[in-house]
Simulated assay, not measured.
Amino acid sequence: MQPVRVLLAPDSFGTSLTAAQAAAAEAEGWRRAAPADEVDLLPLADGGPGFVDTLHAALGGRLVPVTVSSPIGEPVPAALLHAPDGTVYVESAQAVGLPLVPLGRRDPTRTSSRGVGELLAHAVAASPRRVVVGLGGSATNDAGAGMLAALGLRGERLGAGGGALTGATADDLAGLRRLRDRWRDVELLVATDVDVPLLGLTGASAGFAPQKGATPEQAQALERALDDFARAAVDALGDDVRPDLLAGASRPARQRLTAAPGAGAAGGLGFGLALLGGRLLPGASLVADLVGLDARIAAADVVVTGEGRFDWQSLHGKVASEVARRALAYGVPTVVLAGQVLVGRRELAAAGVAAAYAVSDSPDDVPAALADPARSLAARAERVARTWSRAGT
């Protein structure tokens, strides 16, 4: 029998395992069940946590340590990746990630994206040819207002969290055009972890604010606040909002910007960066291209991907859906291995996923899995290998 060639290409498993740790655990379990198989490890990211580390491992370059503000204003360490081609990569989660805010202090009406602006200030200080910002996993919901304040935009309400944006007017963003002008010579790319809009049922507030600590009432208030902020920002920019032919130049500027895929990523940071002239791109696709995912898929018989929680968000631009999409083009089956699987068979089939397995067999097993995530993931990978190694022979 020919050995199966398996590509292990996971994202991080929340705060439990980095992508590299997850791939290593899966490899350990797979090799126990099928020691003759050829196992290839390719940790991935989608713009969220692990974005810089994943690209550093693939591209090389130099990591430059900096200190920035957390969502609650405390100093936290971060790092810029200066790649060999002159691009600087930054990861917003290092400044505004959910783990940076203790459970008792999680309130997206008050947390600020100021630290992302500080990261960008450090990045442009080196006069790079290009800056790429990874978005995802944030504790904030201020549409990038705090980031803009850190970059020099004056206005008391901008750095006080999403809740303070209610009633914002163009006067609160009077310097936005000048700030945008300062960024015209920088190619600013925004790698978003999800393709959701700023507003609406799947937007920053309704779709994500609850997992950051918002009550239903606060989520509704944040929706209104971000709508006010978007109107004020477009009014402040005036005719400086360049038409996007692909998005439909006939639509009002506010609608183009708020409805853009990825505008709602990281609590609306996608929208805030678009105000600076940033171009929103799917983060999982960008990383996949940079690390050479297609060639690794083409050499495999089966691909195993996954993340901590495989749910509706996973189907909106995250790593697993991107891997499945690319593998389908090569006729290679994709298997998802995740901490939790909350997607039905119909949605899996539509996404091109052949099968999905949860690390824990039942909700009662979750605490034990979290207590030793690497061992639990390796054990599940071992059982999955017994099925898919035989299937591929």
Rank of each mutant, 00 (worst) to 15 (best):
P243K: 07
T87A: 15
A378W: 01
D172L: 01
L44W: 05
A78D: 13
V90T: 15
S389Y: 06
V124H: 01
G162R: 01
D244P: 00
A356Y: 10
L59V: 10
V304Q: 06
A288Y: 02
D171T: 07
V64N: 01
V66I: 06
G50C: 05
F208K: 00
S389K: 04
L42C: 15
G392R: 12
A349T: 13
G308P: 05
L119G: 04
T18S: 15
A150H: 08
A45M: 09
S127V: 07
A95P: 06
Q2C: 00
G167K: 06
E223H: 14
L176K: 00
L173D: 09
L348R: 14
E28C: 09
V196M: 01
H56F: 13
A354M: 06
G134M: 09
P35K: 02
V196W: 00
A143R: 01
A232N: 06
A355C: 05
R178D: 15
E74G: 01
L293G: 08
A381K: 00
R110E: 15
A20V: 13
V132Q: 11
A233D: 13
R256S: 11
V291L: 12
F229E: 05
P197N: 08
L280N: 10
P282M: 07
S285I: 00
G134E: 12
E187D: 15
A320W: 02
A225T: 08
L370D: 11
P84F: 14
L348I: 03
A145F: 04
D85Y: 10
R383W: 02
V336Y: 05
P84W: 11
L273C: 07
A355R: 15
L179N: 08
V291R: 07
P43V: 09
R130Q: 15
R325M: 05
F229L: 14
A259D: 15
L315N: 06
D311V: 05
A338P: 13
E38L: 10
G115K: 07
V291I: 12
T111Q: 07
G200R: 05
R130M: 09
E156C: 05
D365I: 00
S113E: 11
A349N: 03
D244H: 04
L59G: 08
A170F: 04
L198V: 02
R279A: 14
A299W: 01
D40W: 05
V131W: 05
P77C: 06
V133Q: 12
A58T: 04
A358V: 04
W388G: 10
G306L: 09
L7Q: 10
V366P: 10
G29Q: 13
A274N: 02
T305W: 12
G277W: 06
F13H: 01
Y330N: 03
S321W: 10
D11K: 01
V101L: 13
L55A: 09
S360N: 09
R184I: 03
A123H: 09
L245M: 09
G136K: 00
R346C: 04
R130F: 11
A45W: 08
I297S: 06
D181V: 02
L237T: 04
V96G: 03
A300V: 03
W312Q: 13
A191C: 14
V241R: 06
E382L: 00
Y89E: 14
L41V: 11
